[in-house]
Design a protein around this nucleic acid. Sequence first.
DNA 1: CGGCTGCCGTGAGCTGCATCAAGGCTCGCT
DNA 2: AGCGAGCCTTGATGCAGCTCACGGCAGCCG
Lengths: 249, 249
Amino acid sequence: MSDCPAKNLDATLARIACGSCSLVDLCLPVGVTRDEMDELDRIVRRRRPLGRGEHVFRFGDDFRSVYAVRAGSVKTYTMTESGGEQVTGFHLPGEIIGLDAIHSGRHPSSAKTLETTSLCEIPFAQLEDLAVHIPMLGRQLVRIMSREIRGDDELLLLLGKKTADERLAALLLSLSSRLHERGFSAREFNLSMSRNDIGNYLGLAVETVSRLFTRFQQQGLISVDSKHVRLENLDALRALAGFDKPRCV
Amino acid sequence: MSDCPAKNLDATLARIACGSCSLVDLCLPVGVTRDEMDELDRIVRRRRPLGRGEHVFRFGDDFRSVYAVRAGSVKTYTMTESGGEQVTGFHLPGEIIGLDAIHSGRHPSSAKTLETTSLCEIPFAQLEDLAVHIPMLGRQLVRIMSREIRGDDELLLLLGKKTADERLAALLLSLSSRLHERGFSAREFNLSMSRNDIGNYLGLAVETVSRLFTRFQQQGLISVDSKHVRLENLDALRALAGFDKPRCV
DNA sequence: CGGCTGCCGTGAGCTGCATCAAGGCTCGCT
DNA sequence: AGCGAGCCTTGATGCAGCTCACGGCAGCCG
């Protein structure tokens, strides 16, 4: 542990306070003062990065904390009794995961990193206590949860009503606009998730996803090179998906 | 207005305080004291019942309040740009609707009554202010929203992975257990929503839903008489649906 | 090096559910 | 009573996407 090369990195990350984090206006501390942010900083635990494929929490775990993605990406998924997965979301920096566990006190879903990922762990009991002193923090939490509900409802529409093409187009556009918000290119990015995860999330067979990527490329909508995607015709994709910004009103 | 026969009913309903409401342990004021409940009472507006098919709020409306169903039932739905509906939920007494609007300040979905329905309107700004003085109220709000997210995720699994049979079985069991929690029979109830709404919600064509009802009846799983359903073989339904309590962990 | 494992792409055939079409039932309205 | 509008049911047909089967490629390990 002490001679691990990650230690320095760890120490560096530990120094990043909410106030100096570039995600500050995507994450919890929106609208709180400098002093209040320091209070939040005191309860946030910045953990050393997780490697690809590690669990943040597992189905059935006791609920203690919610987690903010700081860098990297995470998939969340629930499980059927028969062992099948349903991927419920891909989460990018600034997003909070674990909110579905508050109600029951146990995690009803699992979360696994898709690549090397660093997270902020926010012990929930302390967050609730802090929210009593910092009303804005509670309000922001509620706003974030509202957005989550909204996002899920949009996904329901996608799974309930849309064709395979529309679904993939919608996912690509969602990733594109979310990455753009975070300062990355909206037109060109890497998919950190496997084709399998994509199919699972969109309610499609892997083979269908694979064929769709091929066809989208043939149609000049995108260029794909394994994990790397470039959106060549955003307007056509938007027309296909049927809406512009899948995760906003 | 003054000679309307609904007026007396209105007055009666208006007298029902949260403290004396039978839904008190399903709704917002869980775990708050008597005095705190009185404070909540002061901001809750008990409106006269809505008739069948009336809107509680519409897509695009300014967000001012959330609503608790007191009696009756409500469907919520979002819309595609092309005008199609996606039903996102059926809501029974004690459930809160409108939570998806907090984030953006506008309702991203519509809510329409399925039968004569009475609601409590809870102005959200006042609820937030009150939550500052009654921490438990804020916590309960967050818990309710967490359950909502959890419920949506379960629905995603349903739409993404389950067959038509499994979907209908899951819906019937969900309604059954939720009605049971509210003191109604778990085995026999009326469907307040149309076959169309059911199909829409489950991502199926009306015709498929109709055929499923017929087949379930032939298989001895249920008896149906138009809106009236009796679950004849709960265990078999549960086995079909693949899980027991669709909206709980 | 060779074998093994995980991920991705492609083709061929099948199937669950949508779609289309038509008829019955109920209820409210004239 | 008679008529029309919704809502529901049933049957026939078609197709989007699933399943199965196979081959390729990259990374990993002995």
